[in-house]
Design a protein around this nucleic acid. Structure first.
Length: 296
DNA sequence: AACTAGTCCAACCGCACCGTT
DNA sequence: TAACGGTGCGGTTGGACTAGT
């Protein structure tokens, strides 16, 4: 038996709030408070809305201390710093930004900051490549070929880039060349927009202060992958799938987007809805050993 | 001017957690 | 201790808006 719905969906209004509804809710909350019960509030206030919807509207829009308008440079920097420290814990990040909501911060990250960071990272990569930087291996590690990752895909249908960046440097808009390692895929680093990204080896649990990130591709800025499909513990670590070789993947602690599972899904989302595959699925046919994924 | 693609953000959904019974 | 109900959270969606062609 499933959980009882929080409200009678057939009898509640959904969609955008009207100014009248806003006024009703605002007036009621300011006069009576929430009473500690959002579920009962809409009925008392005379609103045909779900309690959850009322709560969201109040917290994200109607609260008097909400700060509307664009984010400042300082706020951007703080969000990036906090994201680097705690990942996508938007409510925790938002709590450090007076007047901003978790929804605001999340949207701002997905639509602006993520791209900004990746643009900065990509620029640095291009510089290294243009300069024939000796740190970029030409034959080692063994190239991660399209066929090896997607045996059933044609050569032309796979996004051609997989690279590994240093997270701490990315967040400082300054790639640390010492920490870069590449997987050269058909010699293509590609101008495609990269979607961040996974951290490997850095988490609150292991205190690794030299995190490394994996940049992958997806078709759109938002929703790199369905993170909710990955079992996580309350510290934000993925459950531990086993590498095909039997090696534990504990090092692949979750941060932002990451694990090899998500990395592959980030690529794979060009073809299929993400989340279709259980974590136990990928070791069966993906050998990450050649992708040079390792903690620094 | 009309259409398309991309961007942004408000709102929704489902799940986990927690307090109460 | 299990069941239940309310809340909070993160991920996702849909539609409005804008820019480009």
């Amino acid at each position: 038996m499933g959980r009882a719905p929080c409200c009678d969906k057939a009898n509640v209004k959904r969609g955008p709030w009207s100014p009248e509804e806003d006024a009703t809710l605002k007036s009621y909350v300011q006069t009576h408070g929430t009473g500690g019960n959002w579920i009962a509030l809409p009925k008392k206030a005379g609103l045909r809305r779900c309690g959850k919807s009322c709560r969201l509207r109040w917290l994200n829009y109607l609260r008097p201390d909400i700060k509307h308008g664009g984010f400042t440079e300082e706020e951007d920097n703080l969000i990036c710093t906090l994201f680097a420290q705690m990942g996508s814990r938007w409510s925790a990040i938002a709590s450090q930004l007076p007047g901003r909501t978790d929804n605001d911060v999340k949207n701002h990250w997905n639509t602006k900051l993520k791209k900004k960071i990746m643009a900065a990272g990509e620029l640095s990569l291009k510089t290294l490549i243009t300069n024939n930087d000796p740190l970029i291996p030409s034959t080692d590690p063994t190239p991660l070929t399209q066929n090896s990752v997607f045996p059933s895909q044609t050569q032309n249908s796979l996004p051609p880039m997989l690279s590994i960046l240093d997270a701490s440097s990315v967040f400082n808009n300054n790639i640390n060349e010492q920490n870069i390692s590449f997987d050269q895929t058909n010699g293509l680093y590609g101008p495609q927009v990269m979607d961040v990204v996974s951290e490997i080896g850095a988490s609150s649990s292991n205190n690794n202060n030299n995190p490394m990130m994996v940049a992958s591709l997806s078709e759109e800025g938002s929703s790199v992958s369905d993170s909710s499909s990955i079992a996580m513990n309350n510290k934000g670590s993925v459950s531990q799938p086993q590498h095909a070789s039997g090696e534990s993947m504990e090092m692949m602690d979750y941060f932002g987007f990451g694990s090899p599972y998500e990395l592959v899904n980030g690529l794979n989302c060009h073809y299929e809805r993400v989340g279709e595959f259980p974590p136990s699925w990928y070791p069966e046919w993906v050998d990450f050993s050649h992708a040079n994924i390792k903690p620094h």
